[in-house]
């Protein structure tokens, strides 16, 4: 039955018949809009009536204790996990719940995973090449040529992430911090409208952390960036708007100072530890 169904859905079989993906429409408000989203795994509610709005060009930090639902939230936005209820809109035109992972990616939502996953067997250059926004259908990919324009674009990103010297090295030999940057570089190659960055500084040295903070703040304005992070010092150094998640829903929202003075937040999360971290 479902086979028949997918065959009769013409836009799935013939790419060229699919309506052109229209650019994200942010004239009427935010770039990402999540409303009343709920997900449960075997009865456990990982996300519970979550409401979240991200404006165009904003740099937003999301914090929250373990199990607050941060990763699951990213899974929902990127189409990896389907919520049991609620709605998720990208701009005012695209309902993300009706799209699959590649579609969402090509729409301009890039995600950096918690654990850096780069293609270790490919070189840094090739990693960026694959990530580049391009015609990603089979035959264009097979016959793709390396033009000067593409090379310039890759060089530019290599410069941004500071890996120019390592361009021909296999990604497998990069240090942890370098892999994180390469991932961010790969996201940049996609020219995304919205960047989801999951714990970018976990396991980084002090200098690497500073470098990352520069990188992310430099991106904001051009792209909307959502950063999920544990490290309070890092969050304080980059955050303009902070959202606190707790047990799958939003506990508080505001500037870092507002949030860290919120008694609810202090109770569940920040508390005495924050003083040390700060």
């Amino acid at each position: 039955m479902s086979l028949l169904h997918s065959l009769t859905q013409r836009d799935r079989v013939f790419d060229f018949m699919a309506p052109q993906a229209s650019p994200v429409d942010v004239r009427h408000g935010p770039i990402l809009y999540m409303e009343d989203v709920t997900v449960s795994f075997d009865g456990f509610k990982a996300i519970n009536n979550l409401n979240l709005t991200i404006n165009d060009g904003e740099l937003r930090c999301i914090i929250g204790p373990n199990g607050a639902g941060k990763t699951t939230m990213m899974d929902i936005i990127t189409g990896k996990t389907r919520p049991n209820s609620g709605s998720v809109w990208f701009g005012s035109r695209h309902n993300l719940l009706h799209m699959n992972e590649p579609d969402i990616a090509s729409l301009g939502i890039g995600r950096k995973f918690q654990k850096p996953t780069v293609f270790e067997a490919l070189s840094v250059f090739e990693n960026l090449e694959l990530a580049m926004a391009a015609d990603k259908r089979i035959f264009p990919t097979l016959t793709a040529r390396m033009t000067g324009e593409i090379k310039d674009r890759i060089d530019e990103v290599l410069e941004t992430i500071g890996l120019t010297a390592l361009r021909h090295q296999p990604a497998g030999i990069l240090s942890h911090g370098q892999k994180q940057w390469l991932e961010i570089g790969m996201l940049l190659m996609q020219r995304p409208r919205l960047l989801l960055v999951d714990e970018p500084v976990a396991g980084m040295t002090e200098q690497e952390m500073e470098r990352t903070a520069e990188l992310l703040t430099g991106l904001a304005g051009k792209q909307s960036v959502v950063v999920v992070e544990h490290d309070m010092g890092f969050v304080r150094s980059i955050a303009r708007q902070v959202t606190v998640l707790h047990q799958g829903s939003v506990l508080a929202e505001g500037t870092m100072d507002q949030v860290s003075n919120d008694p609810k937040v202090i109770e569940v999360y920040l508390g005495a530890d924050d003083e040390e971290a700060a």
């Binding site: 990127t78 990616a105 293609f119 067997a121 490919l122 694959l130 990603k136 259908r137 990919t141």
Partner: peptide, 16 residues
């Protein structure tokens, strides 16, 4: 090769 080593990651890059 990217698919071989990290299928989910490749999908996130927008490749079917």
């Amino acid at each position: 090769v990217a698919t071989r080593d990290a299928e989910a990651r490749t999908r996130f890059l927008g490749y079917r």
